[in-house]
Nucleic acid binder design. Sequence first.
DNA 1: TAGACGATTGCCT
DNA 2: GGCAATCGTCTAC
Length: 205
Amino acid sequence: MSRQLTRDELAIDPVELARRLLGRVLESRSEQGTVRVRLAEVEAYRGLDDPASHCYRGRTPRNEVMWGPAGHLYVYFVYGMHFCANIVGLTEGQPGAVLLRAGEVETGSELARMRRPTARGNGAVAKGPAVLTSVLGVDRAHNGIDLTDPDSSVRLFDGTPVPEERIRTGPRVGVAAAMDIPWRFWIDGSPAVGTYRRGGRVRAR
DNA sequence: TAGACGATTGCCT
DNA sequence: GGCAATCGTCTAC
């Protein structure tokens, strides 16, 4: 069993944190069972100087968690039907977080498939931020949860390290602002990482 | 208080 | 590859 990460290890710049989170294992426990996902794709959002970040326009009730201590989970609702999960980085008073985009299901693939029967990748991978949250069973109720607390239902473990040469970086996905900033990190060759889609969604209708 | 829109996904052509 | 679904959050008035 691998070691649970400490708050000190997560209280760093989100860009550096994003790189370090690759290969880490996120575990969610519930009455249904346990699902463990090895993170394969993440994106950094650094508060005040990043126009794509939820914190760019200041502190609001929604982004409150991002302003708090590192190692907590920031979950938000998007597009009227999906949840996305972030891990808060930096220290208190300095907003910033890392969006969890995709991962490989290590434990509980049956439960994962049950939670997301139509998901791409048949339960072995969680490809996409909203797929990742539903596979883990994470929703609004998990907003603000402490990933470094041994008693939490969602916890973060050190997993297996990723060799530097397998880490790739590129522009963030689906954000219209600051598209040129290469703050997306992924593990090269991971089955959980999809093809790149340009940011700046064209509005339908 | 009304209106615009979003860190997405999956169905349909 | 195109685009609809769907609603919480934020901004402007």
